[in-house]
Design a protein around this nucleic acid. Structure first.
Lengths: 173, 173
DNA sequence: AGAGACATGTAATTAGTTACATGATTAT
DNA sequence: ATAATCATGTAACTAATTACATGTCTCT
């Protein structure tokens, strides 16, 4: 996951590892937090794979290692970006893809968002099913927090669907 | 994390690894999904640590490996349960603790939930700050999806706070 | 001179996944 | 009989964290 995020970020602009971390802290952090301990090794790995290249640069000051995406890196990133967003991990980290959706054509974007919305609807129905089972087979009072947790899942998915609708229709946020 | 969930589940009732997985699929799955590849090794690890014990049982049918929590296991689990829920991971997996909150005394429970609510308020303000920076320093149209992602984070936290209020006040869900 | 941010990295560890492998029991 | 579900496990791999280690630059 982080590999793709890194590719996506340096796709906008060449950056150092340190810059990438700072960049992530203004937005992507909502879904994903990176540590230097994962970031630097990933930059080396991507270099070895030929998806990025490194060059040193000293704009007046000290030497810094800048990373730049290669053509192959761009391709790998774009393929990832265009694969549908899955919800089966339950953590929503896949949602980070949407952060980069301004790179997609409007039509593709709409298609992917509608697909994602649809998957959320399906998942929501599964949660409703689970809830129904709880309510009918168990004593409600003993399971207050267990039901609450299910309710939380339902609320988040409901909000996700509303949000999808809003961004698909480009409503004022 | 999964270690504590496993402890929490067999704390209710002795179970096999297979049972634990089934059990998780009715509720906890909202936050956490386990595979057998992680579950079985964890059961062995917990046994080695002395937090659970294993016994074979054949209720008429084939032999199955049942796991039972020890006194020490209970202690470890309860300590984990009573430590405040963190939100800094951004994935919300820590929320799974609430699933087990019926084990806590009402007062402790309320205290932990209020603390969690408070942390969410703080985090929400950080997100508002980020959003403000985006809106003032960048061209809004180029950053539509980046802003959307921030907006999503904000909405989820807002919903989380509402949900906290509802369960603290034991409102009908 | 010292604090704090900038900058890069490694080592040990933790936590988990996927795929594979095997076999028993139950319902149709 | 055969498919589905029950049941247990291992091996190879992936992904990440935390703590450590080092040093530079900028501002006050």
């Amino acid at each position: 996951m982080l590999e793709y995020i890194v590719l996506g970020i340096i796709n906008y602009e060449d950056m150092t590892g340190y810059d990438i971390k700072k960049y992530m802290e203004c937005g992507i952090c909502v879904f994903y937090k990176a540590s230097f301990g994962s970031l630097y090794p990933i930059l080396k790995k991507l270099t070895k794979k030929g998806l990025v290249t490194m060059y040193e640069s000293n704009n007046g000051g000290r030497n810094k290692n800048y990373y730049c995406i290669t053509e192959e890196g761009k391709k790998i990133f774009e393929d990832w970006l265009e694969t549908p967003i899955t919800i089966d991990d339950g953590k929503g980290t896949q949602l980070v893809k949407i952060y980069f959706y301004d790179l997609l054509q409007e039509e593709k974007c709409r298609e992917l968002l509608l697909k994602y919305r649809e998957n959320n609807e399906k998942y929501l129905n599964e949660l409703y099913e689970l809830e129904k089972q709880y309510v009918t087979t168990r004593n409600k009072d003993c399971y207050y927090y267990k039901l609450s947790v299910l309710d939380y899942g339902i609320r988040v998915i409901q909000e996700t669907i509303r949000w999808c609708d809003d961004i698909i229709n480009r409503r004022e946020l």
